[in-house]
């Protein structure tokens, strides 16, 4: 178990990680029509989904200590996202015949410039369908998404473990796990929607120029998570001290 002050700092750090992770996960609602690169849903909802998968995974190793909980959360989240990307790419490639192409890279507007996939070196220009902003998830966006999911899952697991540690002295173990799970999910949803305002419904991950607006997300999530963390700390302290109204 960890002390309440460290747990409060962990909630803040977890909330910020959750917010920042959304910038790395490629998602776009118009991806459903193969009209933009990224998984076919809003960035915040996808990140929330990956985060919840991470929290479920983390809950299985709650008795094993902090490190296994964080690793379980991160891996569970990344696994969920990679499976989603794989299935999305299969449907797009074999269902409608659209190859995975980064729209931003194809038009030379990616973070690192050029028109090639930064990792595989595959040319993107020329494969993009006219009138679209790319389609599917090419390798560089998969890597970006995996990094984002690992961060998000670890952030969710941090919040989960911190709330669990803070509430355990006041309630039974199974209740502490249930409460920590739903509070961690709440913190995840609060922080994952804020970056969506910056991303305006679409991002290709770290290769999208919108990654440069990350400082706004960082500040917003830091302030929001700090307020939430202070509230959780104060109420847990009241409950543990026996000051129950």
């Amino acid at each position: 178990m960890i002390d309440p002050v460290t747990a409060t700092i962990m909630i803040i750090a977890g909330g910020v990680l959750v917010g920042v992770c959304v910038h790395f996960i490629p998602a776009s609602a118009t991806g459903a029509m193969a009209a933009a690169t990224g998984i076919a849903t809003g960035p915040s909802m996808l990140s929330a989904g990956a985060g919840l998968a991470g929290i479920y995974a983390a809950a299985y190793s709650i008795d094993s200590g902090l490190a296994p909980v964080i690793i379980s959360g991160a891996v569970g989240s990344a696994l969920m996202l990679l499976i989603t990307i794989l299935c999305g790419n299969i449907v797009l490639a074999f269902g409608i015949g659209a190859p995975p192409v980064s729209g931003q890279t194809a038009s030379g507007k990616s973070t690192f410039g050029g028109t090639k996939d930064i990792i595989t070196g595959f040319e993107q220009e020329g494969y993009r369908s006219p009138g679209t902003d790319g389609h599917g998830m090419p390798f560089q966006t998969v890597v970006s998404g995996t990094i984002g999911a690992l961060m998000g899952g670890a952030g969710g697991a941090l919040v989960f473990y911190a709330v669990y540690s803070m509430t355990l002295p006041a309630i039974s173990t199974e209740n502490a796990v249930a409460l920590a799970g739903i509070v961690a999910a709440g913190v995840f949803l609060i922080n994952s929607v804020l970056p969506a305002y910056v991303l305006v419904g679409k991002t290709e991950g770290m290769f999208d120029m919108k990654i440069r607006s990350m400082h706004r997300t960082f500040i917003s999530c830091l302030v929001t998570s700090s307020i939430v963390a202070c509230v959780i700390y104060a109420i847990s302290w009241l409950a543990v001290s026996g000051v129950v109204a």
Partner: peptide, 11 residues
């Protein structure tokens, strides 16, 4: 919004 109705409801 830069996010969907669903996101704002969840948030």
């Amino acid at each position: 919004l830069g996010t969907g109705n669903a996101s704002i409801g969840y948030w």
